[in-house]
Nucleic acid binder design. Structure first.
Lengths: 162, 162
DNA sequence: CTTGAAAATAGACACCA
DNA sequence: TGGTGTCTATTTTCAAG
């Protein structure tokens, strides 16, 4: 679990943007030979930094025209049931258990409003629900290493670049 | 933009789970020859169903120990500035513009609470903010084609399997 | 869509700087 | 650790059925 150096961070940025790059291509872009790049990638995979690779699919291209964020406020007793329900509904693609008034923040992709209504109604069995339609989803950003420089000022001890 | 058949949906499920599968391996698993599988994958890519491939990175492995959902309620005039700010802060990895009281739902990954405080404070310049710490993120599910069968009942016209 | 062959590439290894 | 060269395994592309 060594801290990642500059090259590791570059590799992560590359692979988060283009997950199918070959070791040789990654090497080319970060200034390393193919074996060296492949070795680093393997190290990142084995150490659990890279947990997998996913194809990204466009919801609209699948007819999933409605994207919503649903917040659910439930009781401790009902939480497990709500989670179980959420895990069984394919339209609920993301489940976050959070602190605060709401207990769960869910992301839902549905073909039409009617289906969203069904999902929301079903969720409402577990507690009060707040539904927001997503008007626009901005492109998700890659995760950057905590030691990487940020654009905003920081507090705490001086940052030292390794 | 033909409707996807069963095999296309299987391929999407496979690739959303394991984005680096080869055409040959995909073919094996869906019962197709390698050229046929590769052709379908290309078709899905070119038609915009598959928009890319990403490596998935573990935030904790990067020292990003704090994961939060921040909801921002801002004015129309300030919205553009808030979006601009969000795009410049690497810790803000997801931005959703939504309907309802809140205008934006943001996901933030920070190394420590101090950094989250900075981000939240900065966001608060654009309007009232509600912050929830993520206690647990359940694994994201693959997107399933709208024509695929769901576990819950549905309304509207009878479903017909093709 | 399948099979079969060819061309291109990627990944793995051994050895050296 | 990284670079080079090489060898092998895979992949992809293409021609034909």
């Amino acid at each position: 679990m060594e801290p990642l150096d500059r090259i590791d961070r570059d590799i992560l940025a590359l692979l988060q943007a283009e997950g199918r790059l070959s070791g040789a291509e990654v090497g080319r872009r970060v200034g390393l030979s193919q074996p060296a790049a492949s070795a680093r990638i393997q190290r990142l995979e084995r150490s659990g930094v890279i947990t997998g690779y996913r194809a990204v699919v466009d919801p609209v291209a699948l007819g999933l025209n409605i994207h919503a964020v649903v917040r659910l406020r439930t009781t401790h007793a009902r939480l497990a049931h709500a989670l179980d329900f959420a895990s069984r509904v394919p339209e609920i693609v993301s489940v976050l258990r959070v602190t605060g008034e709401d207990c769960l923040v869910l992301e839902v992709h549905c073909p039409q409003a009617g289906r969203l209504e069904q999902v929301v109604d079903a969720l409402a069995r577990y507690g009060p629900v707040t539904t927001s339609l997503v008007l626009r989803a901005y492109p998700r950003k890659p995760l950057a290493d905590a030691t990487a420089a940020s654009s905003e000022g920081r507090s705490g001890p001086d940052r030292k670049e390794r």
